[in-house]
Amino acid sequence: MLHPATSLQSLYLLAITSYSLDLVSLLTLETNVLRRISGLPSPRRHFHLMPTFATGSYPTVLLDSKMFVGGLNWDTTDEGLRKYFSEFGKVDACTIMRDPDGRSRGFAFLTFDDPESVNAVMIREHYLDGKAIDPKRAIPREEHLRNTRYFVGGLAPTTNAESMREFFSAFGKVVDATVMIDRESGRSKGFGFVTFEDSNNADQFVGKLGLMLDDKQIEVKMAQPRSQRDQARSANT
């Protein structure tokens, strides 16, 4: 019988060779595997697998050394954060994000010299300045939006950004809601976009039938990146 850690590592390798994962899903799977191997509880996050043909060779996964650190104490300093994470390897850069008035926003970005340091961080629980913090591998903004932004079609003429935000707030924290408006008529085009803080509850509304907003059934699906939309338009012209 395989050791649990060996089984999980084998599952990880099988998943990335037998399925096509977007970057966010791959990093979520990586986090879950590393935490399970270390005996830590896995975060409640979803990753989406799309079956594809396995090539029989392991793909090259390019992961950098940048991390996002959330849940910081308001009083934590750049120096204190750098000192704490230097335990895991050489820290090249460390910046706590702040408001214009200098107040901490409660999260930071840091970059290690060696990508292996990121793995060392992810298999442990972390406490700094009396508070549990949440370090994770940083995801490029474009990739994050690709997995948290959704197309909403079939909108009623009366639906606006406010009512759409209120509706989708039942599924998680909404960071943006937009109804597309025709420039000439000033009327709704019947579709819009909603962006969540994360994709944890996407399975509750993506592709679901019977979702009603303002007495009209709506359709929700993953939003295509602008580059893919432009490519599709070019192919149809």
Rank of each mutant, 00 (worst) to 15 (best):
I37Q: 04
T76E: 04
E143I: 02
V61Y: 08
F88W: 04
S188R: 04
R82L: 10
S38L: 12
R124H: 06
G106A: 07
K221C: 00
L63F: 15
G39D: 11
S10F: 13
V69E: 00
G154S: 11
D214R: 03
I37K: 14
S7C: 11
F47L: 10
V91F: 12
A235P: 06
G80W: 12
A170F: 13
D114W: 02
H3A: 06
P225C: 01
P115M: 07
N147M: 03
R183I: 07
F85P: 01
T55S: 03
P41T: 07
N236R: 09
L26M: 15
L63Q: 06
D101G: 03
L8A: 15
A54W: 10
K66G: 06
V121D: 03
R137D: 14
R98T: 08
G130F: 12
A108D: 09
L81H: 02
N160Q: 08
I96N: 01
Y150S: 00
V174R: 00
L63H: 10
S25M: 13
A15V: 07
R35V: 10
L209K: 13
M180N: 04
N236T: 10
K221L: 00
G207S: 07
H144N: 12
N160W: 14
N160L: 03
H3G: 15
Q204W: 02
L13K: 09
S10K: 14
D198T: 06
F167D: 02
E184M: 09
T55R: 15
Y19R: 13
M97V: 15
P4M: 12
G172K: 07
F196M: 08
L213S: 09
D99T: 07
R45W: 11
L128G: 06
L213Y: 07
R103T: 08
N32F: 07
L27I: 07
S7P: 04
T28C: 02
I96R: 00
F88S: 03
H3C: 14
S86K: 05
F107V: 12
I139S: 01
E30Y: 03
K221D: 00
P59A: 04
